[in-house]
Structures are given as C-alpha cells and as structure tokens.
Amino acid sequence: MSSRIGVVTFPGSLDDRDAQRAIAIAGGEPVALWHGTTNLSGIDAVVLPGGFSYGDYLRAGAIARFSPIMSSVIDAAKSGMPVFGICNGFQVLCESHLLPGALTRNDHLHFICRDQKLRIENTTSAFTSGFDTNQEIVIPLKNGEGSYIADERTLDELEATGRIIARYVDVNPNGSRRDIAGITNEAGNVVGLMPHPEHAVEAGFGPSLDGLAFFTSVLSTLVNAS
C-alpha cells in the first residue's frame, strides 16, 4: 500500500495541484486537505504548498499559520510526522515556529522567477535522504519574499548541526543569509524549501527531473519507519 501524503489547500494556494501530481509521480497517494478542517484524514506525511495564502496579508504565511488545519499539522509535526513546506509553505512553517528564522522581502524588491541551481547539503532529513551529499540540482524558484533571515547565533547553530538542507549556488537570488534555500528542524522531519521541486518532476515540464527526489525521499523514509 502506498503512503498517503496530504497537500493542504489554503485560500490563495497555487501549487497544491502540482504538489499532488508530484506525489503521484513519485509513487505516493496524494490526499487533498482543506485548511478549514482539523482532520488529517489518516495521512502519513503532509506538504504545505506554494502560493499566496490569504493574499500574503499581514505577512506571508502569518494568517495561514492560525488556520484550523495548522493546529493539527503542528501537533503531528511535533510527534514526528514528515512535513514539507515549499515556498509559501516554508513561510507558514517559520510563522508556526516549527522552523527557526523568518522569510522577508527579497533584498532587491523584485519578484524572481528563474531556474535556480542548488547544492543539497543534508541527506538525512525526511525529504532529502534520496540525494547524494553536495549534489547540485536545478529547479524553479519564484518568490517575492524569499530572503531567509535569522540571528547570527541561530545561523551558526543551523550550520553546526547540519540543518541547512540546501544552499543557492552561483547566485543568491533574494538576499538570504548564508545563501540558505532550505532548512530542517532538529529531528529532520520538518523541512522548508524556498524553490519549487514540484515543478521539476516530469519530462517536458520544468528544467530537470531533480525535484522528484524530495518526494521519493519521504516515501522511502515512511517505508523504512514502518
């Protein structure tokens, strides 16, 4: 039986269907979850997709963080369920304090949409175990508020504990501290990533198939855990 991976749709989510599609292509069973429920429908893992939840009003991710589904997601994350926040989902995870730091407006103020090279530096988290250490990948990046910020002590701790899962290579597209594109929590089950792996999973669409390994990684993680 394939693993059931939920994808939350908030008002203003854009990439929920692409995330569901990526999960199916990876061999999992995608489960659509609505923001207004607290019922996680027996899922094994959850993806918070990209987009502009609640219009990015107040701060990106700030209102989504208080939606009914997030109280269940936060509880599940704390008891070890794999949670993957992509772009706006990463912002929601920071606002929920499941991940440290914050994502702020790009330092140059422009919305960026480009194929971005990344280096995968952590291959033990629930969503990166299928990569080789220091593997370079190219996936789409599209954000206006993707500049990762935390205080120096937090950044040092992330470095020392290997919790920076991916860094931007060649160009830092948004002013993120220490070129950070994605991080994980201490347990490795909660992962946030600013670029979009779900747009690089199928031949003919996107710059590569490099995004697929994020989704196959969590399926392997779940099989190994059971």
């Binding site: 107040l58 701060r59 700030a62 208080f66 606002e95 440290p100 730091g101 914050a102 910020i149």
Partner: peptide, 8 residues
C-alpha cells in the same frame, strides 16, 4: 502572536 513576528 499575530500582529508582529517577533523574530524580525
């Protein structure tokens, strides 16, 4: 909790 993100 809501109006400000005290991280930033």
């Amino acid at each position: 909790s809501l109006l400000a993100n005290t991280v930033i």
